[in-house]
């Protein structure tokens, strides 16, 4: 992996906003004093009159975005995932979700891979919180290419979208020909022994884990689930029917995220044993992102180990 190109999806977010901004005059960007961390400063440099800094006031920012959207603009409201989904949850729920306004929430610094800042900034609850809002679309890109395509897809659909990006630079696994559609997962590797359904920066790790599993004689069908909601239920069921065992992997608490979304679908339509890999009801802590992910079993080796244990091998 040493020579693999790595890009942080927050960087992709900023660049995609700039590219889209050149085409769409109604696209505006809001930030809460984090523009050089969320990377909306890339957009700001290109379109300073369309970038509104709201200061350190995320609740106000979300509702300002709601107001802007009613005027026919398409606001991307940006801050860290912790504040977008946590601090401003009720603003997003009542004032963006309930009226189903055309607001896009660009949440960076999702998950444990925030690293050194520690638990206060490591948001592992955002999928769970955002999934509960009726009509909310929830996206999490696996790499730079998918992130940029997601920003465009979010702009092009009508209605609220939550996009989760990461701080850490991670491998680029797609080329530009990749075609992203909201609500559709992607099969990355074929295999018949276990389905590994992953999202976000866990996807490249799952692909690497599949290689390790193959060496042990286990065929893994790796699925990139970029859309957390609406979930690609057909693909989940198809993967379960084919493999008979399902592993989910997310940089998120196992409570209420991708894993439980998959479990919900399978419990109702195709009961199948599932192993949820994620953060197990605990807070993170400070440390280098890579070391933290390894310590929490959220890397290729950890996924391989948990999968083999799940399969009784």
């Amino acid at each position: 992996m040493a020579d693999v190109k790595k890009v942080a999806t927050r960087q992709s977010y900023g660049e995609a906003l700039k590219e889209l901004g050149a085409e769409k005059a109604d696209l505006v960007v809001l930030d809460a004093d984090l523009a050089n961390a969320t990377k909306t400063d890339i957009f700001k440099k290109a379109f300073p009159d369309r970038h509104f800094d709201c200061g350190i006031a995320e609740a106000n920012m979300m509702d300002v975005a709601a107001g802007l959207s009613t005027m026919g603009l398409v606001p991307f409201a940006s801050t860290f995932a912790m504040f977008a989904s946590g601090r401003a949850y009720e603003q997003v729920r009542n004032t963006i979700g309930y009226p189903h306004l055309n607001v896009k929430i660009g949440a960076t610094h999702g998950g444990i891979s925030v690293g050194e800042d520690g638990a206060s900034h490591q948001c592992c609850e955002d999928f769970a919180l955002m999934r509960t809002i009726p009509g909310m679309t929830v996206l999490c890109p696996s790499d730079d290419v998918e992130a940029r395509k997601m920003v465009r897809a979010a702009y092009e659909m009508e209605g609220p979208v939550y996009l989760r990006f990461c701080r850490l630079a991670t491998p680029v696994i797609h080329d530009e020909s990749y075609d992203f559609h909201i609500g559709k997962g992607e099969v990355l590797t074929e295999g018949g022994d276990v389905a590994v359904i992953a999202t976000g920066i866990m996807v490249p790790e799952a692909v690497e884990a599949a290689k390790l599993l193959k060496e042990k004689g286990v065929g893994a069908m790796v699925v990139n689930m970029g859309t957390i909601k609406p979930l690609d239920e057909d693909l989940v069921i198809r993967a379960a029917q084919k493999c008979g065992r399902v592993v989910t992997v997310e940089e998120h608490t196992v409570i209420g995220g991708l894993g439980e979304a998959v479990c919900g679908v399978l419990a109702e339509h195709c009961p199948t044993p599932v192993k949820r890999i994620g953060v197990y009801d605990e807070f993170g802590h400070s440390g280098p992102a890579g070391a933290l992910l390894t310590a929490m079993g959220l890397d290729a080796a950890g996924i391989e180990k948990a999968t083999l244990a799940f399969l009784g091998k």
Binding site: A59, M62, D63, V64, G67, L73, E90, T95, P99
Partner: peptide
């Protein structure tokens, strides 16, 4: 605007006013 949860309407109104000026 849909409202009801107190404290949020002024932010929305500010967004509308900002949007009107921008446009």
């Amino acid at each position: 605007m849909s409202t009801g949860s107190l404290g949020q309407g002024l932010s929305v109104a500010a967004g509308m006013a900002k949007g009107a000026k921008f446009l």
